[in-house]
């Protein structure tokens, strides 16, 4: 058994078996991370470049740790301080790096489809670490892994994705994945931040009322308001957003059940999520980060270039 794809460009391209295999393998890596020596020699012969054309803390550290714990050699690329600042094209940069015998590329880029473009032109395995507003597949996988770990299964699970759906690649990957694995998804946020045809295109429910959505769901995945991606004013102020769509302690206390709160980070405290929720025991935000390393180890392990002519 192996994955049906050579790259991880998006959850869209994965089969249900692929997703199950990644989540199962991640379980084994999670156990590895509990050992006295949290490292296995599996990717000793593999070199990986982390190409980050966009800022990142969690994802970059998480990938780097995952690579190191698989014994891979890693090099890091950040756009500031590189020749990309001098105008070198993406393809030229990657071709030059690959000519130094690099086997895998982990890439984050502000342009949607950038990893798909690379996959057509270079022989190395590519892992999408977030491309524009398209997908963030490893985040989708680690969210699913965390939900499954916490609640036992994905099938039939009611998941609310709350906030800035329009600009969120995390939302896209979550929707694709949860749909494939048989969970029910409702997106919630102000109408200006929810794509108009999302119900028809993605088979998710839309609810503009936060209280109703929270009453319905088992898990609330709260997204960050991405101020850097908004060119126009989509809500009047952060304060008003917080009043209408911020997840607050009082809202959660008035539910007749205890839901699980997630957030992909970084949190805008006091905007989409209040501190007393983010730091409560209902929140599994830090477990998400912890699980991220195991999930990324699984992805790297399963894609680590058993392709011909890559020895």
């Amino acid at each position: 058994m192996s994955l049906s794809t050579r790259h991880l460009l998006g959850i869209k391209d994965l089969t249900v078996d692929d997703i199950s295999l990644i989540l199962e393998t991640a379980e084994q890596f999670k156990e590895v991370l509990q050992r006295p020596v949290k490292k296995v020699p599996s990717l000793r012969d593999v070199t990986i470049v982390n190409l980050f054309y966009e800022n990142s803390t969690r994802t970059r550290f998480s990938f780097e740790l995952a690579e190191k714990r698989l014994s891979a050699d890693t090099i890091n690329f950040a756009v500031s301080g590189s020749s990309a600042a001098k105008g070198e094209t993406l393809l030229d940069t990657v071709r030059n790096i690959l000519s130094m015998k690099v086997d895998m590329v982990v890439m984050r880029h502000s342009a949607s489809g950038a990893p798909h473009f690379l996959a057509q032109h270079i022989p190395a395995a590519i892992i999408n670490a977030g491309d524009g507003v398209n997908e963030h597949p490893t985040q989708g996988l680690l969210d699913a892994f965390s939900m499954r770990k916490k609640l036992g299964k994905l099938e039939g699970l009611k998941v609310a994705i709350i906030g800035d759906i329009m600009h969120s690649r995390v939302a896209m990957s979550n929707i694709y994945l949860l749909n494939k694995m048989g969970a029910k998804v409702t997106v919630c946020g102000p109408p200006t931040l929810i794509p108009k045809y999302i119900r028809e295109s993605f088979g998710v429910e839309v609810n503009y009322n936060l209280k109703e959505t929270l009453e319905w769901c088992d898990v609330a995945n709260v997204l960050r308001i991405q101020l850097e991606r908004q060119n126009q004013v989509l809500f009047s102020s952060l304060r008003e957003y917080n009043i209408a769509y911020g997840v607050k302690r009082k809202l959660l206390d008035n539910l007749n059940k205890e839901i699980v709160v997630m957030h992909p980070g970084p949190i805008n405290r006091g905007v989409e999520l209040d501190s007393d929720v983010a730091d409560s025991k209902q929140s599994i935000i830090l477990q998400q980060v912890e699980n991220g390393v195991a999930v990324r180890m699984a992805v790297l392990y399963l894609l680590s270039g058993r392709n011909p002519g890559n020895n």
């Binding site: 393998t25 590895v32 599996s42």
Partner: peptide
């Protein structure tokens, strides 16, 4: 994860 034939074939891990 400790196999020496990992370059030849991908193996699926079991629980430790």
């Amino acid at each position: 994860f400790y196999r020496d034939d990992i370059r030849k074939e991908l193996h699926i891990a079991n629980r430790t």
